[in-house]
Design a protein around this nucleic acid. Structure first.
Length: 139
DNA sequence: GCCAACGTTGGC
DNA sequence: GCCAACGTTGGC
């Protein structure tokens, strides 16, 4: 069963366009225990919304997990994990944080409750709502 | 750029 | 094991 996630990145550091250019990337450097637990739960073919934090504040596309979690090569302690992500789809219409906040179907999203986590789970219902919003048909 | 939220660290 | 200080994140 495919699981759904939301990953955050500052576009000035690594934007969705960078992922599209590179074809795939190692999603490493996560140093928060809770976010690391979510990373470890990711499986091949899981899908993740790609959210631009700080500068754009919108989900701009979808990435797919192309390698399940493995020890983060940038973590000398071996405590943290990484996955590999590849671009799957760029949204026709980015879904902004404001639009997500305004949609009551998304009120329970983990990203609102723990806004600093760089990796959060998304329910299948939330996933479908945001996908619909990205197509402009109202969610 | 500021600062609130909140996880982590370290002195005791 | 408590908790103040510190560092990081991300909305504004």
């Amino acid at each position: 069963m495919t699981a759904f996630w939301l990953v955050k990145s500052e576009p000035s550091k690594y934007a969705f366009s960078d992922l599209e250019r590179d074809g795939h990337t190692t999603w490493d450097g996560v140093r928060n225990a809770q976010a690391a637990n979510y990373l470890r739960a990711m499986r091949l073919d899981d899908l993740a919304f790609y959210y631009h934090s700080r500068e754009e504040l919108a989900v701009v596309g979808v990435a797919v997990v192309t390698r399940k979690s493995f020890p983060d090569p940038t973590d000398p302690t071996g405590r943290f994990s990484a996955v590999e992500l590849s671009p799957k789809q760029r949204f026709e219409h980015p879904v902004t944080l404001g639009e997500m906040r305004a949609n009551t179907a998304l009120a329970g999203m983990v990203m609102f409750r723990q806004f600093r986590l760089s990796v959060t789970p998304v329910t299948s219902a939330e996933w479908n709502v945001i996908l619909a919003m990205s197509r402009g048909d109202g969610g």
